[in-house]
C-alpha cells in the first residue's frame, strides 16, 4: 500500500446518522478503502481530525470502542463552519478522517479495578468509548458506575444506550437532569451532577474515576471525588483546546510546555494541577 502523507485523510463513508439531540449528531463512519479499515487501529481516548472537503477540519474524539472494528463513530455539536456543514451530510456521503492521534486511557493498567465515570452533557462521547471498551471486556473490571447528567432530558446523548446500560445488571447507571429539565416521564434523578454523585457516594476503594464535563461541573465535582477518597492521580480527564494539525506541529493547543494533541488529551488531575491555566 502506498505510504500516506501525514495530512492525507482516510476517506470515510457515513454509514449511520443519528440525531442525539436537536443540535448533536452521531455519525458511524466506514472506510471507503477496505484495506485501510483493516489496518486501522486505535485505543480509547484517542481523537482525530474530521473534515468536510472544501470546508475544513474539526477535532473530535473517537466515540466508539476500539473493541468494535471496521468503523469509528463520532459525536459532535453543530457549532462552527465545519460542524454545521458536517451535520448537513447524509448517509452515503464521504468525509475525511485523520488519526488516531494523542495518548490513551490506560485500560490495561486498570485490570481488576472498579471504574467510576462522571460526566455531563456532550462530554459523554470521549467516555462512551471507554465505557463500551470496558463493557466489551467486562471480566477485566469490577464495578462499573456511570453518573451522567444533562441540562434537560432532551440534552442527554446516546439515549438508547443509556437505556441499555440501565437494564444491564453489570453497570450501575445514574442519570440526572438539572432542576427544571425533567419531563413528566423522567425516572432518573433531578439535580446537578456533583450533588447526585455525593448522594450516590460510590466507593473509591480500588477504583479509578474518569471525569469529563463542562468546566463548572468539573470544578464542583473534584471536591466531592476528593471527599469520597479519590486521590488526584486516580482521577482521569481529557483536555480540549483548539487544534489544527493534531500532531504537535501547528503550535496552538499547548498548555504550558505540553501539547494537548500529542502529550494528551488524557491527563490525570495530578498532572492538570501542575499545568498553567491555559485550557
Amino acid at each position: 500500500m502506498e505510504e500516506k502523507s501525514l495530512y492525507q485523510p482516510y476517506l470515510m463513508r457515513i454509514a449511520a446518522n443519528i440525531d442525539e439531540t436537536p443540535d448533536v449528531k452521531t455519525f458511524r463512519l466506514e472506510f471507503v478503502k477496505e484495506d485501510e479499515g483493516k489496518s486501522f487501529s486505535f485505543k480509547a481516548g484517542q481523537f482525530g481530525e474530521y473534515s468536510v472537503f472544501g470546508e475544513g477540519e474539526s477535532t473530535f474524539c473517537i466515540a466508539s470502542s476500539p473493541t468494535r472494528s471496521g468503523y469509528i463513530e463520532c459525536t459532535f455539536r453543530k457549532m462552527g463552519r465545519v460542524t454545521k456543514s458536517l451535520a448537513s451530510r447524509e448517509v452515503g456521503d464521504i468525509i475525511g478522517f485523520r488519526g488516531p492521534y494523542g495518548n490513551i486511557f490506560p485500560l490495561d493498567d486498570w485490570k481488576g479495578k472498579s471504574l467510576l465515570f462522571v460526566t455531563g452533557g456532550i462530554a459523554l462521547p470521549p467516555l462512551r468509548c471507554v465505557i463500551w471498551n470496558a463493557l466489551d471486556l467486562r471480566n477485566n473490571f469490577k464495578d462499573i458506575t456511570v453518573v451522567y447528567g444533562a441540562r434537560t432530558v432532551r440534552d442527554l446523548v446516546y439515549k438508547h444506550e443509556l437505556e441499555e446500560w440501565g437494564k444491564r445488571g453489570d453497570v450501575k447507571l445514574i442519570t440526572t437532569v438539572d432542576p427544571g429539565g425533567e419531563t413528566v416521564e423522567w425516572k432518573g434523578e433531578v439535580g446537578f451532577v456533583p450533588t447526585v454523585l455525593e448522594k450516590a457516594s460510590p466507593s473509591s476503594a480500588d477504583t479509578v474515576a474518569l471525569l469529563c464535563g463542562p468546566p463548572i461541573m468539573i470544578k464542583l465535582t473534584l471536591p466531592i471525588l476528593t471527599k469520597l477518597g479519590f486521590s488526584q492521580d486516580k482521577i482521569f480527564t481529557t483536555l480540549e483546546n483548539r487544534m489544527k494539525c493534531g500532531i504537535g506541529k501547528c503550535g496552538r493547543c499547548n498548555v504550558g510546555k505540553y501539547f494537548v494533541c500529542k502529550d494528551g488529551p488524557v491527563f490525570t488531575f495530578a498532572q492538570v494541577s501542575q499545568l498553567p491555566p491555559e485550557y
Binding site: F53, G54, K244, C245, K249, C250, G251
Partner: peptide
C-alpha cells in the same frame, strides 16, 4: 516561527487544503 493554520479553498468542485 513555525506555527500554521489549515484552511480549505475551493473553485467549483475542485479544492485544495
Amino acid at each position: 516561527c513555525t506555527c500554521f493554520d489549515i484552511q480549505d479553498e475551493t473553485d467549483g468542485n475542485r479544492g485544495v487544503r
